[in-house]
């Protein structure tokens, strides 16, 4: 089985030098999302200060296969067709 390395970047870089054997990219992606979820569950403040949490997943050659990025953003958004201070219509 290929080995994948899960590096956590949340301002600092936490380099995974051990890695984990997983069947394929899909399984590694699944693991990375669950891992990120676990980290945020432990410490929600990771996303509360305009920060992002990024998990870079590399393979045995050190090649980046994909990244999972979790981020919270300030935004001015409301459901379409509603005015300020207006609740969305029920049943929508």
């Amino acid at each position: 089985m290929p080995r994948y390395f899960f590096h956590v970047c949340d301002g600092a870089q936490d380099i995974d030098d051990q890695g984990h054997e997983l069947p394929d990219d899909d399984a590694a992606r699944h693991e990375a999302v669950r891992y990120g979820g676990g980290l945020i569950h432990d410490d929600p403040s990771l996303l509360l200060k305009d920060q992002e949490l990024r998990i870079n997943v590399t393979n045995n050659d050190g090649q980046l296969r994909f990244a999972v990025v979790m981020i919270s953003v300030d935004a001015d958004w409301r459901p379409a067709g509603t005015a300020r201070h207006q609740k969305p219509a029920s049943g929508v």
Partner: peptide, 9 residues
């Protein structure tokens, strides 16, 4: 109830 990657970290 953690992932192996999380255990390692």
């Amino acid at each position: 109830g953690l992932t192996p990657v999380h255990i390692n970290r």
